[in-house]
């Protein structure tokens, strides 16, 4: 990531990842940083609910899925006998720790989205581990939801322009016109 540094000085780390992504998709160079923000700014101001605005600023669905997956696996585990789980060795205890980690990563993704890459990777590994330790990840369902959720968190980027090819073309057109700051 760091190797793709732009000549412009972008102190906000989220802005630099956005620039990197724009670079990936459109094939334009350093100008895409400004182009991206211009494209986003060109949208007509819309009134959205506070909750929608809150959702847009974080990987909401990924975080929610990961939390739900961890909760599902945990519910199945806490109904089991803790006594027997403890008797059957350390593996029994890990069965509770992994779903707990999934819930923590999911919730933290929602309330502290800046660290989302770390949470998504820990969430993914916990989801996979829960397959082995916790009833096959609540009989596959929890593991599948957890893997989906954590990869969605990883793939999420803040402050993206409108979807589709049209916006990409517009970005490219506007890129040369953007003033160099």
């Amino acid at each position: 990531m760091a190797s793709d540094s732009t000549p412009e000085n972008t102190p906000d780390p989220s802005a630099s990842t956005a620039a990197l992504e724009a670079h990936d998709t459109s094939g334009t160079t350093a100008h895409s940083t400004t182009a991206d923000s211009t494209a986003a700014g060109a949208e007509k101001p819309r009134r959205v609910s506070r909750f929608a605005a809150w959702r847009w600023r974080r990987p909401f669905w990924g975080g929610l899925l990961l939390t739900l997956a961890g909760t599902l696996i945990m519910i199945m585990m806490v109904q089991g006998s803790l006594e027997v789980a403890l008797a059957s060795g350390p593996r029994g205890v890990v069965g509770y720790i992994l779903p707990a980690l999934m819930i923590i990563c999911g919730v933290l993704t929602l309330f502290s989205p800046a660290q989302r890459v770390f949470y998504s990777i820990v969430g993914l590994l916990s989801s996979l581990g829960a397959w082995v330790t916790s009833n096959m990840g609540a009989f596959m369902i929890g593991t599948i939801l957890g893997v989906t959720g954590s990869t969605l968190i990883f793939g999420w980027l803040p402050e993206q322009g409108p979807r589709g090819k049209k916006s990409r073309r517009r970005k490219r057109e506007e890129a040369p016109a953007a003033p160099a700051v």
């Binding site: 949208e43 009134r47 605005a53 847009w56 993914l124 990883f154 980027l157 993206q160 979807r163």
Partner: peptide, 18 residues
């Protein structure tokens, strides 16, 4: 909120990395 907040999105290529 009167100002459109910048909307984050899942990008397919980035998603594919993980």
């Amino acid at each position: 909120e009167s100002v459109t907040p910048a909307k984050g999105r899942v990008r397919l290529r980035r998603w594919a990395v993980l």
